[in-house]
Design a protein around this nucleic acid. Structure first.
Lengths: 100, 100, 100, 100
DNA sequence: TGGCGTATCTTCTTCC
DNA sequence: GGAAGAAGATACGCCA
């Protein structure tokens, strides 16, 4: 049990520093994304619309995954299983969703 | 110029793919952070308290930055400006915050 | 010119205190609003939809159409088209928003 | 219960009108604040610096609250809990922030 | 002075 | 339900 004050404090510090480092990385990436939006905007694109499109694509992808999961469930239920585990495959189906 | 439908569609696609890739990376990092919290919890630490510590440290850091920004503002106001932009120095001064 | 250090400091203090007081008031009102939403939610209303309604009442309808047009344009540019033709739809989107 | 279309529509209308009224009040206060800034600016003060001061003061206040919250967390963790909820006391303690 | 980029503030959403 | 993050709206300063 983490009796703070002993070596546990070191572990705590370590955890916290790792987390803080990762959060900085995350922030860096978020900034990169912002930059790309800014660049796109500078090229004449409508950022808001771009965001909307990205959101839609994400939703489509989620839908597709849900669908694949169901199909897989059914395949397994019917003994048609070929792969390992439902919901863990990502075979190369090119569902018209992410169509480009 | 972004006349969607012509060659611009390629640029759009490129921007969007870059953004989506970065967002995946970001999500990966967020997952890493969650893992660390889970691991810490498993070692007996209180996640809620850890979050509080991290929050506090972040606030302290922001506080310091804000103070440095203030100092810079004052320096500029007094005509001592040397650099281009306030908030870009990091002299180790500890000026009292709400100084009036 | 407000030569801080003389009586000007008093003026500054006064301004800042007035502002801080007003910001507290503002926050109080914001909290009241939140309370009302909470109450409405407790009575069975969908807060999200309520917000949408309020937003729509405030928003200019032309803006909405323009935005939808852009999104559609981009979808088409990316081959995500499912519907008929950009700029030609606006028929069937009776977003649940304007629900009353 | 909120079966929109029946009597509930009246309740909905009432909620929304109350909210819209409060938002007008809120906007009024925001305008007052802007006026004060404008007035201060006219007297020779630097609005940007004023904003910085206000921000810093707010951060300091938040810092203190967060520290009190931490202390409370610790007290609870040590079984010294007396009240219901951390962050609801206001003892004037000055504990050092990132204390580990 | 009027567009444009940036900064700040607010609102919405997500996660825990 | 409350905190953290993302998105959006707004305000401000700059430079031509």
């Amino acid at each position: 049990m983490a009796d703070v004050g002993g070596v546990a404090a070191d572990h705590l510090r370590s955890y916290i520093e790792r987390i803080e480092r990762l959060e900085e990385e995350k922030k860096g990436i978020a900034d990169d994304i912002k930059e790309i939006f800014a660049e796109a905007k500078g090229t004449g694109f409508d950022v808001k619309a771009m965001r909307a499109v990205i959101r839609l694509r994400k939703m489509d992808k989620a839908d597709v995954q849900e669908q694949e999961y169901m199909i897989d469930l059914y395949k397994h239920a019917l003994g048609m299983a070929a792969e390992e585990n439902p919901a863990e495959e990502d075979a190369g189906n090119e569902a018209e969703a992410a169509a480009f």
